[in-house]
Write a protein that binds this DNA or RNA. Structure first.
Lengths: 229, 229
DNA sequence: CTCGATCATAAACAATCGTTTATAATCAGG
DNA sequence: CCTGATTATAAACGATTGTTTATGATCGAG
């Protein structure tokens, strides 16, 4: 009655399927990842996917949510600490983000790739991905940015600053193949990742401060582009 | 002898195939774009692709290089102007980049999407794409950054700054679907694009200046992250 | 007109995809 | 052991893919 181990333990096989499926989805994308390849690498049969996940969609869905729980239990996003400067919080966040996404020190490094694909070629699960992964990250960054600029800055500007922050960081993940071809040596090891994170944090902090300064006393440099080209 | 119009003019059909193929490749990606759909929309036969381009790969290749020539003859990247501040040059470049890529005011708006895909899921043409499109852009930004920081800043740091610049801008293209779901209203029309470009230029200028300042007199804010989490 | 090269079209090919069906193997309970 | 539900496996299905073949239409030149 009490769920004794059957056969070769269904849980283990299911987990193995999820893991190798995550790898295949990350490498080839949802469309081109073949169920036969996944099953072969996981040592399972083709019909096992129908049995456990009913569908390819179902398999993909479970990959997403299992990657989510794996991630938050592996390395949670840093939350505000009482006696912390906003600048320190930002620096801390950049370190977290680069470590989790660019230099994928997590147990499921495929998640970042899957999200990157989903951004450009979304499936029907992009909505869930946004609410599960992306919006919490954005909200945290928005808090930090607001702490840096003060709430008197219009919300739209703070939102744009927030996207600038994420964009600058995410570029090192999304474009890493191009960056390598351009001669950029990928940070190797936690030390180099931390160094890049510090440089990025400096860049971002300066950018935010300059934006609020330019907002306070506008037109230090001519804001309107010259139409001479 | 002198290439009189044959049938329905092969050049026109080839051009129409290229155009609709660019759209399909941009919308569905290289793998999932179907030759049958392309031919149906272009009003051509399936075998015409083998005739004109020998392959699906050949078609994709010609889409890339034709998009390139179309782009540079449509809106060229701004080149350095003698009596121009480096800050002005940067602002000018940001305007160009956002207009060409984010708010795709060009004749072939598909190119940005194709490049975005190629970055994450590269085909064997990524190398050509880098030398044709991406490296020239990077080199121009690197020139501007060097003019801003001075050549005494280590080349590696200038390279990183350069990537920060491109990453912040490119994010508004790569992640635009996610940004919309996060409540970001896409800039609509040249005026709003110019406004976003100005804000981005402010952010970037402040970031670069702060990085050279932090390099000159280090440790204004604690650079090392605190390991308390 | 006739011939040969160029271009167009439809049908078929071989491979792969996700999904399903049919059947065999393995367990718990009676 | 026997039964019935659960799990595993292999084979096949129907659809779609890129590619090819075979044939027919259209032109310029002789």
């Amino acid at each position: 009655m009490k769920r004794a181990r059957k056969y070769k333990d269904a849980e283990e096989r299911k987990a193995r399927l999820l893991k190798t499926a995550a790898g295949c989805f990350a490498r080839h994308g949802y469309e081109k990842a073949g169920l036969r390849e996944i099953c072969a690498k996981a040592g399972a049969n083709l019909a096992a996917i129908k049995y456990y996940f009913t569908n390819k969609r179902g398999l993909y869905r479970e990959v997403l949510i299992s990657s989510h729980s794996q991630m938050i239990e592996n390395e949670a996003m840093p939350m505000p600490v009482p006696g912390q400067t906003a600048a320190e919080a930002l620096r801390q966040w950049v370190h977290f983000f680069l470590r989790a996404f660019v230099f994928k020190q997590t147990k499921r490094p495929q998640l970042a790739l899957i999200i990157a694909r989903e951004m450009i070629q979304p499936t029907s699960f992009l909505g869930e991905l946004v609410t599960l992964f992306i919006r919490p990250i954005r909200d945290r960054v928005l808090d930090i940015v607001t702490a840096l600029t003060g709430p008197e800055l219009p919300a739209e500007l703070r939102q744009i600053l927030c996207h600038n922050v994420i964009g600058a960081c995410l570029h090192y993940d999304h474009a890493h193949l191009v960056l390598e071809r351009l001669g950029f040596k990928r940070p190797n090891g936690p030390g180099e990742v931390a160094r890049l994170a510090d440089l990025l944090a400096d860049f971002i902090l300066g950018g935010i401060r300059h934006c609020v300064a330019a907002r306070a006393q506008p037109c230090e440099t001519p804001r309107r582009r010259q139409e001479t080209w």
